[in-house]
Simulated scan of single mutants.
Amino acid sequence: MRTLPPTPGPGPTGERPVCLYARDLPADVSVGAHSHEWGQLTYAHNGMMRVSAENSSWIVPPQRAIWIAPHVVHEVTMLEAACLSPLRIHATRDPFRGERCRVVEVGSLLRELIAALEPGDQPRAPERAELLGELILDELARAPSRPIRVPLPADKRLRGLCQALIDAPGDTRTLADWAPAVGASERTLARLFERELGMSFGQWRQQVRLAHGASLIARGMPLWQVAQQLGYASQSAFTAMFRKTFGTTPSAFFADDRIKS
């Protein structure tokens, strides 16, 4: 995987608190770990990405974006080719006071406001850019949050295992199968999952599959295909797991998104 530097360009100012710097990125590239003096709404209007920060990972489809507070170290990995369009937001205009990371829905109005914002630091109509920025901040503060967070461990052996499953959530190997590959016994790995992540290996893998599955459903992939990609024996098995976690079916969970879109 190729690692790229962050998008260049100056940050937001008091006069222009919201600015956008877009660039097209292919799949399987990563914007290496970095931080900013400003806050950032990491967003791509097409394609899918993975954002890692604060010992957690989030799978982010086009209907979602993730707020990253100033000075939070983060990394972005493109799971599909996309136009990465992060919004840079002045630290004094933080829409989510006290929250370092927050996943938000990108509804139709917020999506169109972002699309209308000229990229770069010298818009042809600065007054219009300022007004759009204020509308974006107002809409962003109202945006509902529906995150599926995947916690990440500090232990190097466990982190390697977890990263491999995040990259291939349909992998069906057991903890005993993984033990020789990471250089630790099955018992040691089981203890590490409970100690570092507060859950069993099976529970953690379910979170990974939920994160990927929710994003694929949001993209419009049929449920049977989602289940197949994630290693489930059938669509009904995946639906049962989804209902157990969220108390509703995948179709009902995403019904509001389809109405808003």
Results as ranks from 00 to 15, higher is better:
E194K: 15
R205W: 03
A190G: 12
A179N: 09
A184F: 06
W178H: 02
R191P: 00
R187H: 07
A179D: 05
W204C: 09
L197I: 10
V208A: 05
T188D: 11
M199K: 08
W178T: 01
A181W: 08
M199D: 04
L192Y: 03
Q203G: 12
E196L: 08
P180R: 04
R191G: 06
V182R: 00
G202D: 14
A184G: 11
Q206C: 08
Q206P: 03
A179Q: 07
W178N: 00
A176I: 07
M199E: 10
Q203N: 15
A190C: 11
E186L: 01
Q207Y: 12
F193Q: 01
A181V: 11
L197R: 04
G198V: 12
T188M: 12
G183P: 11
V182G: 00
R209M: 12
D177P: 05
R191V: 04
Q203D: 15
V182L: 06
R187F: 10
A179L: 10
D177S: 13
Q207G: 11
R209Y: 09
R205Q: 10
Q207H: 14
E196K: 05
S200C: 02
V182A: 03
W204F: 12
E196I: 09
W178A: 00
E196S: 11
Q203S: 15
R205I: 05
P180M: 05
M199N: 04
F193Y: 05
G198Q: 13
E186V: 02
G202V: 11
Q207V: 12
G202C: 09
W204E: 07
A184I: 07
R195L: 12
A181L: 15
A184V: 05
M199H: 08
E196C: 09
E186Y: 06
E194A: 15
A179T: 08
W204H: 14
R187C: 04
V182Y: 00
R195W: 10
G198M: 12
S200G: 08
W178C: 03
W204V: 02
G202E: 11
A190H: 04
G183D: 14
E196V: 08
A176R: 14
Q206I: 02
